[in-house]
Simulated scan of single mutants.
Amino acid sequence: MGKLDTGAWVLVADSEKALLLVNEGDRKAMHLQLLQKDEQDNPPSREQGANRPGRAQDGTGPHRSALDDTDWHQLAKERFAADLADLLYKPAHQGKFDKLVIVAAPAVLGILRSAVHVTVEEKIIAEVPKNLTDQPLDEIEKRVAEALEPLDL
């Protein structure tokens, strides 16, 4: 089984829910405990947009084309992932954790990679491209251990 130091943090996230966990066990027996849980209420775009999609002039002449409406739902998902990156910065800067494992849906993981501050990035020891936010802690522990197995930490 992969090993995770006592006090290491694990972020488990998808585009609407995040669990921030800490390993209260040791390198022999991981025991993740919940530090913080964040969820966003993100209704579908049709419930968030106030106006009909606009129309644009197609150059000269009477022709007009419809414009795509803003996908508010998708924007909220991306903003949530960027907010998670900000959430990690302050405790990383204060030295509250030395190691971080990120378990996130692939799209969220991509946004997090580009949004995390270098202070947080230096503490990331593994990434797991899976959506495990609705899984029990023992399943999350198993997946984290599997991800750490090939690493020599």
Score class of each variant (00 low, 15 high):
89 Y>I: 04
128 V>T: 03
25 G>A: 09
76 A>D: 02
132 L>P: 03
44 P>F: 08
10 V>E: 07
138 D>N: 11
61 G>K: 03
34 L>D: 05
16 E>T: 11
33 Q>L: 07
15 S>K: 04
140 I>N: 07
25 G>F: 15
62 P>Q: 11
113 R>M: 14
114 S>V: 09
3 K>S: 07
124 I>Q: 02
79 R>L: 12
140 I>Q: 09
131 N>L: 12
119 T>F: 14
35 L>G: 03
13 A>N: 03
109 L>G: 14
24 E>G: 13
149 E>N: 05
74 Q>V: 04
21 L>P: 00
85 A>R: 04
64 R>K: 05
85 A>F: 04
61 G>F: 01
64 R>A: 05
151 L>T: 00
60 T>E: 06
48 Q>G: 01
86 D>L: 09
87 L>A: 08
31 H>E: 06
73 H>N: 15
37 K>N: 13
153 L>F: 14
140 I>M: 11
133 T>F: 10
14 D>N: 15
126 A>R: 08
105 A>H: 13
35 L>M: 15
79 R>V: 01
149 E>D: 06
89 Y>M: 08
63 H>C: 07
109 L>V: 03
113 R>S: 12
124 I>K: 07
59 G>Y: 13
103 V>M: 15
148 L>M: 13
95 G>Q: 05
81 A>M: 02
45 S>Y: 06
106 P>R: 13
117 H>R: 15
81 A>S: 10
137 L>F: 12
19 L>A: 02
105 A>R: 09
140 I>K: 11
9 W>A: 12
82 A>N: 02
121 E>P: 00
74 Q>D: 09
96 K>G: 12
83 D>C: 05
124 I>H: 04
37 K>A: 15
122 E>T: 07
71 D>F: 10
144 V>F: 08
